[in-house]
Amino acid sequence: MSELTPPSPAAWTPRIIAFFCNWCTYTAADLAGVSRLKYASTTRVIRLMCSGRVDPQFILDAFRQGADGVLIGGCHPGDCHYVEGNYKMLRRFQLLKRLLKDLGIAEQRVRLEWISAAEGERVKTVVNEMTAQIKALGPLGMPQAFATWDQEVSELARRTGDAGEVESQEPVAAAK
């Protein structure tokens, strides 16, 4: 399935939501800071204790709220602070990618990376790579898409007469 909207002008910068685990990737991002590495300002990090806490709904919600990409960072396999939370995330991630494909969201918009506390460089590389990738894809524009759909539904309801008002909320609710 294709993306929802075509790429827009170059002035646009992508917004990437990152869910980083407290022990490895968040610390690595701190290290990138302490080392004064420079990378794209596209990413906004939300700290969780473990990548295992990343609920697929967080990712879907991020897209719904207007994120163009979602990055999940956890400890390397075998290194999870909580033994195996990262494996749980990996499994979920595989399923989620299928779901996103069905929803028409390009696979490159989500990325799962193992970044240890020592790999500040890796944070920089991954963020820059992902920024470039999403720039190439263009904005996802879910909020606008929802607005358009709402409008279409209301329009449809208006034309078919009454009983449309209740229906109009459905697409948004479904995505929650």
Partner: peptide, 10 residues
């Protein structure tokens, strides 16, 4: 419980 949150998201 160590607070990883894996059960919460599952």
């Amino acid at each position: 419980c160590k607070g990883c949150g894996t059960c919460v998201s599952s």
